[in-house]
Design a protein around this nucleic acid. Structure first.
Lengths: 214, 214, 214, 214
DNA sequence: TATGAATGAGCCTTCATTCAT
DNA sequence: GATGAATGAAGGCTCATTCAT
């Protein structure tokens, strides 16, 4: 029915509004020092209202992270094409990752916090969260391209696929970290983002090419 | 005098004991959720005693991080030798990094927390802290070897030295992060440490070799 | 609107209730040894609730003092009348002061504590506090009557007005002090309040009369 | 024996040194915010040493107050002479009071704190303390002179002696309070000490003269 | 559903006092 | 006697969560 539908839409958009506010606050002040009050104020909602949409502060954090991860995955997915060579696709994914790191660096702090030992609160059904973080993750996208690249003889096959994926994934990930957390270091050494991206992408790609000898 | 010397030794070892306890608690529970009480209990000391050695919880965190960084730098320094080829030295450093990540994976979480926006408390003279983090950092050791390697035509010179160093540093760092934060992931994929190290080192080295083309 | 009005009234009365509790505890145990927990318990409120109404313990103290000063000023103001002779008005003010000291001797300890070097917490707008303590104080009321008394040739004019006011003010004030702080002394010497009041008032008045020679 | 005597002298002077330090710290920072550490540091003694001479911080405070009271009483005693007229002696006592307030204004704040509800700690034999505060107090000196003055027809006899004494005592006390707690106020009004003293003494004396009628 | 006042567990830090040396 | 490292009770304040309206 129309009414229910509208209500559902409203509920959904309110959830998003809360996550918007949380993302902003979390990324600005750090997750731990952010308070529910601040998020509520930013969302222009009553504090109690937040608890009508999320069971706890930690849940808000997780759904924030989920949303970020979905954006990242979406960006990576839309940048690749099955018709492309794996090397091209990897490059595109790397570029997407970097773009995400630059454009949404808000999320990085949130990802890190989540990764640093915040266990998924038992209140969450967990399914959605688990799926996003384990099944749909960019990790699998990378692995897919590496597999194709090996099949076509482009990438080195002398190393376990998981190992290789891990290496690439970590490089993507930590690159974001250094962009996000050490702007002053980046500046101090006279580096700029574009060149960093270019250099690191080169290093990553070279690291996995078949003809790269030890 | 003997007495003073002994006292100084005792004071020093008590400091270390507190840092030991803190390191354990911090890395187990995360920095924020760790409490001074827990650290004191772990150190088998009264809560107040901790404050005879450190001015605040935050200071304890920082000196923990300093200690970890000193260990890391020390391991790297003692693994290289000016007589070695730069490639060898880089490999040794990488090995040290990995060893550190495996042996002292406690520290990584602490490094991360410190990096996540904890400012150095004004109470600390800061000198010691700043020096360790800025002047003696592994970053500079890596740069030194890269410089030598480029001079001897081994490493690619078509890229700014700072950029190159940054790239290598990121890769070292990421690898450490992988091992420290996701030990269960490493296990889950049936990866073993030697192979991880070998693979990643290979990837890193290849990324910077002169003959590696894009 | 009705709801908001009621809320405002509730908020206001809760504030007063907290100040009531604080006044009681402060005056019984002394300001410093009183704890927020005790005040909260006395007010039959949760500890945190107090902090919804006042930013700190010190602020509670100050607003207590402000309230007391307002009562005192009010009593003094309503006891005088512009039509009265200055001597009568001074007497009335003295009586009001004494009444206040007897009826609200709770406040005295609070005034003293505030006067003994507690600076106004920066969190307070300060306006209300400053006004009460500096602009509307009984001090000015006394001075006004002394001025009038001098103009009409009743009080001695050979002494600076400020000096005279100060002398009277201090006598009022410290009289309250001795009533409040040394009840056992009062008792020990077989004194009673009414006679003390009468005697001291006489001494004060005589001290300022024009025809009092040295 | 000589040795014991010297030891006794040493012990005594160390006690005094501690009280010196305490007086300085107490009056500078306020009794409550002063710490044993600060007093020990000021006295250039170990913290534990203080506890060899006094059983508690509160005891130090009390013996400080006792010492101050002894000084005050001493000053008053040596200023009067049985041969003088009572009016002269009262004047002298008043002068002593003022001098004390000016020279040792440190003490007043301590007196106030002690008066503000610090009970005499049970550890103290109490005798010395009680005696000083109750038997040797300036209060009795004043009473003595008032008695003599009434006998010689100088002071009003229509009022109970205790009441009268109380009145004078309060005025002395208030004056001391003014000078000690509000030195900046004294300065702000451009008042100078001599005039203050003169005015107040005049007010006090006039208040008790026989020929002062209401 | 929206709200925000009320709540109290929990935390960091201080400091008077003790006691082994 | 002198010392100061060790102690832990106690206090002010925060903030996630609840619940009556």
């Amino acid at each position: 029915m129309g009414v229910n539908e509208r209500k559902s839409r409203e509920r959904s958009s309110r959830r998003e509004a809360i996550l918007d506010a949380a993302e902003k606050i979390f990324s600005t002040k750090g997750v731990i020092t952010s308070t529910i009050d601040e998020i509520a104020r930013e969302a222009e909602l009553g504090k109690g209202t937040l608890y009508n949409y999320f069971p706890s502060k930690e849940a808000i954090l997780w759904y924030c992270a989920v949303r970020g991860m979905k954006i990242l995955t979406g960006m990576m997915l839309s940048s690749v094409s099955p018709g492309n060579e794996p090397l091209i696709n990897l490059r595109k994914m790397a570029e997407s990752f970097m773009k995400f790191a630059l454009r949404h660096n808000n999320y990085f702090r949130i990802f890190l916090t989540v990764g640093m030992g915040f266990s998924i609160p038992s209140g969450l059904t967990g399914n959605e969260v688990k799926e996003v973080f384990e099944k749909e993750s960019p990790y699998l996208l990378i692995m897919e391209e590496l597999k194709r690249g090996r099949a076509s003889g482009l990438f080195r096959s002398d190393v376990d696929l998981n190992l290789l994926t891990h290496g690439v994934w970590i490089q993507f990930y930590s690159f974001m970290q250094l962009i996000s957390l050490n702007p002053e270091m980046v500046a101090a050494f006279g580096l700029n983002h574009e060149k960093l991206i270019e250099t690191n992408m080169m290093m990553i790609i070279n690291g996995i090419r078949k003809d790269s000898g030890v």
